[in-house]
């Protein structure tokens, strides 16, 4: 073990954590909101839209993240460029940082997975809960917002936690479109001196710590959301 290398490289790898977390937080935030939207569209069975969303989700769930990243990296510049032309602006596409493309791919990937999570979580809420909501005069939106979604969230939370961990791990693939996140930084640092084992042990530790910390946070949130069930279980 080359401890001198480790001492020197560790702060730099740790320094890449913010860019990893940036991708994680932005992709999860936008992706999950989109996912909930997709789930509601599919539930509402809106002509054409529901089918289009279903096809989109199927594609996003089937294609490996690394390929999604590549596609995003090569297709997004053109989309942005032509959109700019359409509204009359000449956008300098090459000035857009790679992390944007990575986030775009990860966001859509998360949206697809999250929509399935929300769909099954909503389906798992007892139909009687809807009926009870209507019986006291709520409309569909109110029922969803006040009664169904709070219960569905408790069911969804463990799966969302799983998605979140998956997302943290997937950000390592952003390396391939040139984002200097944790894995890329470690790899580049290790190259000149061939300190692979040192670099990757440190990288592993960092990812394990991140996974552990967020896992605990999701567990805590899950228990918080499930408090109404704990009472129920105690009564049975």
């Amino acid at each position: 073990m080359d401890f001198a290398f480790m001492a020197e490289a560790f702060p730099q790898i740790v320094g890449a954590i913010p860019i990893t977390l940036l991708m994680v937080f932005v992709s999860a935030a936008i992706g999950w909101v989109l996912g909930l939207l997709f789930a509601l569209v599919r539930r509402a069975d809106v002509q054409f839209f529901s089918q289009a969303v279903a096809v989109f989700i199927s594609f996003m769930r089937s294609v490996p993240s690394v390929i999604l990243l590549y596609i995003s990296y090569y297709v997004m510049p053109a989309v942005i460029y032509f959109y700019g032309q359409n509204i009359g602006i000449e956008i300098n596409v090459s000035g857009i940082p790679a992390v944007v493309y990575a986030i775009a791919a990860l966001t859509l990937n998360q949206a697809a997975y999250a929509s399935e999570v929300f769909r099954s979580a909503i389906a798992a809420v007892d139909e009687g809960q809807f009926e009870a909501s209507y019986s006291i005069g709520m409309n569909k939106t109110q029922a969803l917002q006040k009664v169904i979604l709070p219960q569905a969230m408790a069911t969804a939370m463990p799966n969302l936690g799983g998605l979140f961990i998956m997302l943290i791990k997937d950000t390592s693939l952003a390396y391939y479109v040139g984002v200097y996140e944790i894995t890329a930084t470690a790899n580049l640092l290790s190259m000149p001196t061939l300190n692979f084992i040192e670099a990757y042990i440190m990288t592993t530790v960092i990812y394990e710590v991140l996974s552990f910390v967020f896992n605990q946070m999701f567990r805590a949130e899950e228990n918080h959301l499930k408090r109404f069930r704990a009472v129920l279980a105690a009564q049975v």
Binding site: I165, K169, D170, S172, L173, T183, Y207, E208, S211
Partner: peptide, 8 residues
Amino acid sequence: MRGIPTLV
């Protein structure tokens, strides 16, 4: 195994 990215 669940915490480590496949790439790593």
